[in-house]
Computed example of a mutant assay.
Amino acid sequence: MTLEVRDVYKSFGQVRAVQGVSFTVPEGRVCGLLGSNGAGKTTTMRIIMRIFLPDRGEIRWQGRPVTDAVRASFGYLPEERGLYPKMQVREQLIYLTQLKGHTQAEAARQVDLWIDRLELGEYARRKVEQLSKGNQQKVQFAAAAASRPALCILDEPFTGLDPMNTLVMEQAFRTLAAEGTTILFSSHNMDQVEALCDDVVLIHRSRVVLAGSLREVKRSARRQTVRLRVESGDYGFLREFPGIRTQSATGGAIEIAVPEGLDPNRLLARALQTGTVTEYSLGEPSLREIYIEKVGGADA
Rank of each mutant, 00 (worst) to 15 (best):
A124S: 12
A124G: 03
A124C: 08
R125H: 11
R126I: 00
E129C: 02
Q130V: 01
Q130F: 10
Q130S: 13
S132G: 10
S132N: 06
K133R: 15
G134F: 00
G134M: 01
N135I: 00
N135M: 10
Q136T: 14
Q136W: 14
Q137T: 14
Q137F: 03
Q137V: 13
K138N: 06
K138D: 04
V139S: 09
V139H: 06
V139F: 03
F141P: 02
A142W: 10
A142I: 02
A142R: 10
A143W: 06
A144Q: 06
A144F: 09
A145P: 11
A146K: 04
S147P: 04
P149N: 07
A150D: 13
A150M: 11
C152Y: 03
C152Q: 02
I153G: 09
I153Y: 06
L154I: 04
E156H: 09
E156F: 10
F158C: 08
F158H: 05
T159K: 10
T159G: 04
G160M: 09
L161G: 11
L161K: 14
D162A: 10
D162K: 13
D162G: 12
P163W: 14
M164E: 03
M164Y: 15
T166Y: 07
L167W: 06
L167A: 06
V168F: 11
E170A: 05
F173A: 10
T175R: 13
L176Y: 12
A177T: 06
A178T: 01
E179H: 05
E179P: 03
E179N: 05
G180S: 03
G180E: 00
T181L: 02
I183E: 12
L184S: 04
F185A: 04
F185W: 05
F185Y: 12
S186A: 12
S186V: 03
H188S: 00
H188P: 00
N189I: 14
N189K: 13
D191P: 03
D191L: 11
Q192M: 14
Q192N: 06
Q192E: 15
V193T: 08
V193K: 07
E194A: 09
E194D: 15
E194F: 04
A195D: 07
L196G: 11
C197W: 07
D198L: 11
D198K: 08
D198I: 13
D198E: 08
